[in-house]
Design a protein around this nucleic acid. Structure first.
Lengths: 164, 164
DNA sequence: GCCAATTGCTTGAAGTTTAAAGAAATTGCA
DNA sequence: TGCAATTTCTTTAAACTTCAAGCAATTGGC
C-alpha cells in the first residue's frame, strides 16, 4: 500500500474546485448582464425583463404560439406564462385566440402595438448587448460561443441522465 | 458615393447579431444549470437556491457579515436579503447580533446547525457541478474561465460608463 | 454642538417564480 | 365505443425579487 497516495486522496477528495469556480463565474457574468439589461429596460421603456423575453419569443414567429411552446422556450413554468400573458393581453400587447381543433390550446400573438413596441425596444437592446461585450474580439466571441455550446450540451447530458 | 455600401448599411445597420446570440447562449446555459441545481437542492435537501446561496456566502467567513455585505456579494437588493435572513433565522440556520459600535448594523452568522447542514449540501453540490461540466476538458475550462473573466470586465466597464 | 447628508436596514406594493394540484379536452388503445 | 393516460392550461400557496419610501443611527462639515 502506498501511504502517499492515500494521504493525497484524503486531502484532495477528487478535485472539483475548478468546475465550481467556473460555475460561479458563469453565474456572476450572467447576473451582472441581466441586471444591466433589466435596469435599461425599466429606465428607457418602463418594461420588465420577463415581459420583454416573452415578446421576444413571439416576435420570432408570425402566426402565434401556444402557452406550452412559450414556457418550453423560456424555460419557465406553465403557470408563470399564464400570468405573464394575462398582463400583456390586458395592456394590449398580446392577442389570444383559442384553437378551433383543440379547445385546450390558445394561440398567442403580438398585436400590432405589441410588435411595434417590441421592435423599438429590441433595436436598443441589441446595442446595449453589443456595448456590454464591447471588449471582446470577434475571435473571443467565436470561442465563447463554441465553449458555451459544449457546456450546454454537457449540462443537458447531465440533466437527462439524472432524470432518466 | 458608393451605392453598394449604402445598401449594405441599410440592410445591416451595424452587425451586433453575434453579441446578441452570445448573450442568449450564455443565458440559456446559466438558466439550464441553475434549474438543475435548484431541482437537486429541493429534491435532496428540501432547500431553495437563494437560501443555499446566502449560506454559501456566510460559510466563507467565520465571524459573520452584515446585511449590506450579503446583498453586495449576492448582487441582490437589500430588502431581499432582509427577508431571506429572517426566514433562515426562524429555521435556526442563522444567528443575528447587533453591532455594539453602530446600532444600525447587524452581524449575521451561520449557527452550528446551519454550518453543518450547509457543508453537507455543499459537498453534494460540488459533485453535481462537476458532473454538469463533465464533458469539458481541463483546457476548455481554463479557456472558459479566461473568456468569462474578460466578458465580466467588459460588462462592468459598460455598466459603469452608463451610470457615470 | 448643530444639522444636513449619508448609511444600514425594514417595510409595502407590485410583480415574478416555482411546485403542486386540479380542471378540461384530446388521444390511443382495447 | 369506453375509458385510462396524456396534454394544455389555470389556480393556489409560498417564496423570492425589485423598487421606492421611510426610519433610525452615524458622520462630516460648520
Amino acid at each position: 500500500m502506498n501511504l502517499d497516495s492515500e494521504t493525497k486522496a484524503v486531502e484532495l477528495p477528487d478535485d472539483h474546485g475548478t468546475e465550481l469556480r467556473l460555475w460561479l463565474r458563469l453565474l456572476t457574468c450572467t447576473t451582472l448582464i441581466e441586471g444591466e439589461v433589466r435596469s435599461q429596460l425599466r429606465e428607457k421603456f418602463d418594461v420588465t425583463l420577463p415581459r420583454f423575453d416573452l415578446m421576444a419569443q413571439l416576435d420570432k414567429v408570425s402566426d402565434g404560439m401556444t402557452l406550452s411552446d412559450l414556457s418550453k422556450r423560456m424555460m419557465v413554468s406553465n403557470g408563470n406564462v399564464t400570468g405573464l400573458v394575462e398582463r400583456l393581453v390586458e395592456s394590449g400587447h398580446l392577442d389570444r385566440r383559442t384553437s378551433e381543433t383543440d379547445r385546450r390550446v390558445q394561440f398567442i400573438r403580438l398585436t400590432k402595438l405589441g410588435r411595434a413596441e417590441f421592435r423599438k425596444m429590441a433595436a436598443e437592446h441589441e446595442k446595449w448587448i453589443a456595448d456590454i461585450f464591447g471588449d471582446l474580439s470577434p475571435k473571443d466571441i467565436r470561442e465563447l460561443m463554441r465553449l458555451l455550446a459544449k457546456a450546454k450540451g454537457s449540462a443537458q447530458r447531465s440533466a437527462k441522465a439524472r432524470t432518466a
